[in-house]
């Protein structure tokens, strides 16, 4: 049963069509890659799925097993509440806050005490804050950031910041996780570790993952299916084996290195 169904998704910026008639389907529990040359429109697809941009045309529906919900026209925080979380290609952490607070903020939507509870530290404040702390710490230790929990996000190394992006996304309790170039800037050893980590969180959290990545070794290793985007349109879709030999894909990537896959 598909958890995400995208039909004819289109986005124009003035005269530029960044995304054009894209159809995507993600089965529940799948790990799917979204690849394509620079400027192909991959990040724009994520921004459309998460409500940062509104589509010019097309539909996006999410179905977590209890009825289909249209995500078009919804605000990002409502889409997050529906169970779609993301990381950002150009890291967008809460830089001057601690690692712990970065994660705790992402848990905000599931906190039941309100503004009065916050002002007077009353009601379920104590209990919920304790639970929040424990959950945040367990997420951070999963991502190897337990020791850094009081460090400011801005002081983390680049790789650690990418990990914190993932921890923060997981903290929102998603069903569908969108990862935008999680391995960018990582060395091969770090990338290998991340690759197995992504496979692991999918299992542990029962996630469906859509992954944008330029690192072909990562994509080809863990993705079950791949969509290839070029100039805003899907030019190919299939298993890693099919994609590697697809003529149009090779053409689109002409000059880029597909060899190390």
């Amino acid at each position: 049963m598909p958890i995400l169904n995208v039909e004819n998704l289109t986005k124009t910026f003035g005269g530029l069509t960044a995304v054009s008639g894209v159809n995507l389907t993600l089965e529940s529990g799948e790990l799917v890659g979204l690849i394509g040359p620079n400027g192909a429109g991959k990040t724009t697809v994520f921004n459309l799925l998460t409500g940062v941009y509104h589509p010019t045309r097309g539909s996006v529906t999410l179905d977590r097993g209890h009825g289909a919900v249209s995500l078009v026209g919804k605000k990002p925080y409502n889409i997050c509440k529906e169970g779609v979380a993301r990381t950002f290609q150009n890291i967008r952490l809460f830089r001057s806050l601690t690692v712990l607070d970065n994660v705790r903020i992402a848990m905000h939507q599931n906190v039941r005490y309100g503004i009065a509870g916050g002002l007077f530290h009353m009601g379920s404040y104590k209990k919920e804050e304790q639970a929040l702390l424990e959950k945040a710490q367990s997420l951070l230790s999963m991502l190897g950031l337990a020791e850094k929990s009081d460090e400011l996000a801005a002081n983390l190394s680049y790789g650690e910041q990418r990990h914190l992006e993932i921890a923060r996304a997981l903290a929102t309790d998603p069903a569908l996780l969108l990862l935008d170039e999680p391995a960018a800037g990582m060395n091969p050893a770090e990338t290998a570790q991340l690759t197995s980590f992504i496979a692991q969180i999918r299992r542990d959290f029962g996630l469906t993952i859509l992954l944008i990545e330029h690192d072909m070794s990562l994509v080809m290793t863990i993705c079950e299916r791949i969509y290839v985007l070029d100039y805003g349109t899907v030019i190919a879709a299939g298993t890693p084996g099919e994609i590697k030999t697809d003529k149009r894909v090779i053409e689109a990537y002409l000059g880029e290195d597909m060899g190390n896959a």
Binding site: P76, Y77, A85, F88, R92, L93, R95
Partner: peptide, 13 residues
């Protein structure tokens, strides 16, 4: 800190 990130993490900014 970051309005877009906050909104994407479920905060009604």
């Amino acid at each position: 800190e970051d309005e877009i990130a906050a909104e994407s993490m479920g905060v009604n900014t």
